[in-house]
Nucleic acid binder design. Structure first.
Lengths: 137, 137
DNA sequence: TTTATTATTAGTAATGATTACTAATTGAGA
DNA sequence: TCTCAATTAGTAATCATTACTAATAATAAA
């Protein structure tokens, strides 16, 4: 059996940046930063690695109404998204009611709480059980 | 003072469709449906109205890793997103723990619960208080 | 009702983020 | 070291969304 994933300097640098920032960067921001150490790196390489790592679950991906945002924080947490400046702030999650009060005490204006469950629905799950097909992304 | 928002047949048809579907359609899907009643409607008109209504808060907008999704369900709820077929299912929200159990009983495979708070952060809120500038979207 | 004003529209071009593609490179097992 | 598939750099292509413009139509005022 051959290896499936290879360690590359590009991947290492991208992950290293994500693990040490709290800005939840866009792919472009990751690219701009990593380019300082690897001037030849390609934007496509950044996208490919970010998506691959998000797929593996070792980093987080956040969908916004503009660009993708990525997250290297390994501790379980949730997010506060500022709709004005698009800043994403990490939130230590306990329960929404308590958190809401905490946030408002902090000075943030919470307009709504969005809860999104991700996974696989009953139908897809069943389809997969009987007759395995590959993922159709 | 003049009026600000006008009632148009286009807007009415778009909202009517959203209020009577549970598929959380993409703009394209809204367009395809409304076109049956208004063959001359433009896709740009659909986008403009969807964004305008979401801005007003009378419909919901959901960001995915592909297209925008819109939601005309007026009852407060949360979402379950199937990562396989991208179907979005409405969830009556109480608290995440109870809901998680309910969902798994339903047969859905929940991989993670995403909680997103939306609003305006302390910094932006303060900036706005002293020296009002327009929104910079 | 008629007129004036201006938000809205249809149609289409432009934008911009993301992905696809390809020849060259390189990581890792043998 | 050798082999070979995974990965890369560079760039073209894709595609969802937005911008633009002349024409239209919804509303307020006459």
């Amino acid at each position: 059996m051959e290896n499936v994933h290879r360690e590359t300097v590009q991947k290492k640098e991208i992950l290293d940046f994500l693990r040490n920032t709290t800005i939840h960067p866009t792919p472009e921001q990751v690219y701009e930063h990593v380019k300082k150490r690897l001037p030849m790196i390609s934007l496509a390489t950044v996208y490919r690695n970010l998506n691959q790592m998000a797929e593996e679950g070792i980093i987080g991906r956040i969908n916004t109404d503009r660009e993708m945002r990525f997250d290297g924080n390994e501790i379980e947490h949730q997010h506060f998204v500022c709709e004005k400046c698009n800043k994403i702030i990490d939130i230590e999650f306990h329960n929404t009611k308590r958190l809401l009060r905490e946030l408002e005490g902090e000075g943030h204006e919470v307009r709504k709480v969005e809860v999104i469950f991700r996974g696989m629905c009953k139908e897809c799950s069943n389809k997969l059980k009987g007759g395995k097909n590959g993922k159709n992304k």
